[in-house]
Design a protein around this nucleic acid. Structure first.
Lengths: 219, 219
DNA sequence: GACTATATCACGGTTTTCCGTGAGTTAATT
DNA sequence: AATTAACTCACGGAAAACCGTGATATAGTC
């Protein structure tokens, strides 16, 4: 008997999880072996369990899908990962694939796409749903940013990934403590990034960081 | 034979719609007679069709659930409306019930709640899922929240001249001391304005003030 | 193998922000 | 005359941000 494809589903909306599970259960080759409501739960689950495919929502509390993806990437975990996105995440696709995402489907697309994606990815072929492809296409046609004050691309490029992550959270009004909890880092480390940001971007305080982020569309 | 409860489901995520439909179809008293992906579609559909219950997502493109609710309310349409919300919409509940929402369920709650909600509301009893209730409870415990996140003209109008002046300087990365020097005020006074701003705009810190200023073009 | 960049954490200290609460003055409105 | 809104200031305490400096580990590059 053929071994079923083991799938773990992570999304902060239980209703959506149930919907996906119900659908996947209609396929005899697929078995849902677990689900999580937060990024932290995902990490915990995979410490003691395993699955072939992880269906991972981008927006989750505590630890979002992107962070989870990065952690898995770093640890060279072998399971494939399909990112679940809301409509406006097209621009993330490229970035996320470099972090090891194997597939990308939009929640706006029909549910059968998840089935297709799982089978495709399990076969080793990346999968992107049509609307994601369309979004990518539109992006490549010259994403027009509304001009305001001149962005400082030199400074942007000088930022490391972690610094950008911290910057994004600063914009969301997170305190250092909250960032540490979210990114699973020590408060001291977050402070270091914050200091580096202030220096690199040559601003005086968190407001300066936020304004820089706005000008450079890091938001 | 008993007449089934006719339900229309509106959400911009097809996957979620499918999940809900699949679940509702397991109940013999309920019949899903239509679904929509945008607010406009909902309006169009109800011009030529009818349903007993409308399950309506708050966040949709083109015309969001709130607008749809208002339109229905104005036209005194007779069907009941259950709002589907993401986690952080608790503060909207009160406002939405005045616009004629009969129920409120969070997407984070389990799917069976939709069944309960539909039957309850169809019986004439309002329904709120537990986490929504909890959110309301917390709100009534004093956390005075004005409004959600979108551009908020009410909040802008509530600001006094002095508060706006301080806000502008906050955006320019001024410290309280510097603002006091610039505006020829005592540090204490500037602090007061800053506190008022935080409260009025319902943000956590100076970054929140800056982001509000950006959104509302006070810069 | 040395060098560099990145990521991670620590510690002690200063400054600023944030919070609550209260209170006096003027100008406009009822 | 009474109320209200805006403006002004004060004080004490808690929390967070900011600053400098240094350390370790790792991965990649020259």
């Amino acid at each position: 008997m053929k071994r079923k494809i083991k799938v773990h589903v992570a999304d902060d909306h239980m209703i959506l999880i149930e919907g996906i599970i119900a659908m996947l259960n209609t396929d005899k080759d697929i078995e849902v072996v677990g689900h999580s409501l937060t990024g932290k739960e995902v990490i915990e689950w995979f410490k003691t369990n395993e699955a072939d495919i992880l269906v991972l929502d981008i927006n989750m509390p505590e630890l979002d899908g992107i962070e989870v993806l990065k952690k898995f990437n770093k640890k060279k975990k072998h399971q494939k990962i399909i990112m679940l996105s809301s409509y406006d995440d097209a621009k993330l696709v490229k970035e996320l694939t470099t972090y090891g995402a194997d597939g990308f489907i939009s929640k706006t697309s029909a549910g059968e796409h998840i089935l297709k994606a799982i089978k495709s990815v399990h076969n080793g072929d990346p999968y992107f749903s049509d609307d994601i492809k369309e979004g990518l296409f539109n992006l490549s046609l010259g994403y027009h940013v509304t001009e305001g004050s001149r962005p400082d691309s030199k400074a942007v490029d000088s930022l490391t990934e972690r610094e950008v992550e911290v910057l994004k959270l600063v914009v969301k009004e997170y305190s250092t403590q909250e960032m540490a909890d979210t990114l699973l880092l020590s408060v001291n480390t977050v402070e270091t990034y914050r200091k580096n940001l202030l220096k690199k971007l040559n601003v005086k305080n968190a407001v300066g960081l936020a304004m820089f982020a706005v000008k450079n569309k890091i938001i």
